[in-house]
C-alpha cells in the first residue's frame, strides 16, 4: 500500500511541483514588492514569463549548453522525485549535488567572464552549504535510526523535537539554496549586481526557461525538506508541516528584503560556523544523550 502512496507522491511531485513552484514564485514577488512599498506584478506573472521564455529565439553561446542545462533539469526532477518517493536521504542529497554540478558546468562552458565568475561563486556556495546538508541526513539517521525519508511517517514525534539545532542550521543555508539576500551571490532574481546575472548570464530563451523550471522544482523539494522535520505518524502533523513551511517561506522573503548581499568570505565563514555550532552541536548532544541513556 505504501508503495502506491510513494508512487503517487512521486508522480504528484513531477506533475504539480511546477505549478506550486511557480505560484510560490509569484507570491514571493508580490510579497517582496509590498514590503518595498510597490504594487508588484500579477500573481501568475512567473507563468507568463516562462511561456514567453519558451517562445523566444535560442542564442546559445556553446553547443554543450543545452545538454548541460537539460541534465541539470532532469537531475533536479530526479532529486525531488526520489525525495517525495521517500527514498534514502543521502542518495537524494548527492543527486542534488550532481544536478548543481551540471548547472555550474553549463555556466563554465560559455567562456563568458561573468558566467565563469558566477560559476566560481556557485561552487563556493556549494562549499558553504554541503556540510550542513550532509549533517541533516546524519541528523535524521541519529533521530530516527534510518536514512530513508519514508520512515519519518512511522515515528511518534516529529524530527524537530530532536533536531532543533539541525533545523536552525538548515534554515540558515536554505537562504543560500533559495538564492536570497544575504546569500544571493552567484545569481539573483534581480540583475542589479556586478556579475550581471552571474551564473545564468549566458542563458536565454529556452535554456533560461529550463533553468527557471528547475529552480521551481528545487524550491518545492527544499520546502519538502523543511516539512520533513514536522511530519510524524500523527494525523495533525501534516497541518503542522504545512504551517511551518509557510512560515519558513515567509521568513525567507522577509530576510531577503531586510539584508544586503554579503561577500563570499562572509558567507563561507558564517555558514560553517552555523553548521558547526547548530548542526554539529545538535548531533553532539544527541550522541551524548544516546551514550548516557
Amino acid at each position: 500500500m505504501i508503495y502506491l502512496y510513494r508512487t503517487l507522491s512521486m508522480l504528484a511531485y513531477v506533475l504539480l511541483a511546477p505549478l506550486v513552484g511557480g505560484f510560490l514564485a509569484g507570491l514571493d514577488r508580490k510579497l517582496s514588492a509590498r514590503m518595498q512599498g510597490r504594487m508588484g506584478p500579477p500573481l501568475l506573472q512567473p507563468f507568463y514569463d516562462l511561456a514567453k521564455l519558451f517562445k523566444k529565439q535560442v542564442l546559445a553561446v556553446s553547443r554543450y549548453q543545452f545538454m548541460m542545462v537539460a541534465s541539470f533539469l532532469a537531475m533536479v526532477i530526479g532529486t525531488g522525485a526520489l525525495f517525495f518517493g521517500g527514498f534514502d536521504l543521502l542518495l537524494v542529497f548527492f543527486v542534488l549535488t550532481t544536478a548543481c554540478m551540471f548547472f555550474v558546468l553549463a555556466a563554465t562552458v560559455t567562456n563568458s567572464p561573468y558566467a565563469e565568475l558566477g560559476a566560481q561563486r556557485e561552487l563556493i556556495q556549494m562549499l558553504s552549504y554541503e556540510p550542513m546538508i550532509l549533517l541533516t541526513a546524519v541528523g535524521f539517521y541519529m533521530a530516527n535510526g534510518s536514512f530513508r525519508g519514508v520512515d519519518v511517517f512511522y515515528t511518534d514525534e516529529p524530527a524537530i523535537v530532536r533536531l532543533p539545532g539541525v533545523f536552525l542550521g538548515l534554515l540558515f543555508i536554505l537562504t543560500i539554496k533559495f538564492r536570497k539576500s544575504p546569500f544571493d551571490l552567484s545569481t539573483s532574481h534581480h540583475a542589479h549586481q556586478e556579475l550581471v546575472k552571474g551564473v545564468t548570464t549566458e542563458f536565454s530563451g529556452v535554456l533560461m526557461g529550463m533553468v527557471e523550471l528547475a529552480h521551481w522544482y528545487e524550491n518545492v523539494f527544499l520546502l519538502g525538506l523543511v516539512a520533513l522535520f514536522f511530519v510524524s505518524s500523527a494525523w495533525w502533523s501534516g497541518l503542522l508541516a504545512v504551517g511551518a513551511v509557510l512560515l519558513v517561506w515567509f521568513l525567507e522573503v522577509l530576510i531577503d528584503n531586510t539584508s544586503a548581499r554579503v561577500k563570499w568570505n562572509h558567507m563561507l565563514r558564517s555558514a560553517w560556523i552555523v553548521t558547526a555550532v547548530c548542526g554539529g552541536g545538535n548531533l553532539l548532544v544527541l550522541e551524548i544523550i544516546r551514550m548516557l541513556f
Partner: peptide
C-alpha cells in the same frame, strides 16, 4: 544590529503601496 530594516518591511506590507498604477 541585524535586520534593522524589518520594521520598514512589515510596515510597508500593511500600508498602501507608494507606486501609482500609471
Amino acid at each position: 544590529g541585524i535586520f534593522k530594516f524589518t520594521k520598514f518591511a512589515l510596515k510597508n506590507l500593511f500600508t498602501k503601496p507608494a507606486t501609482r498604477a500609471y
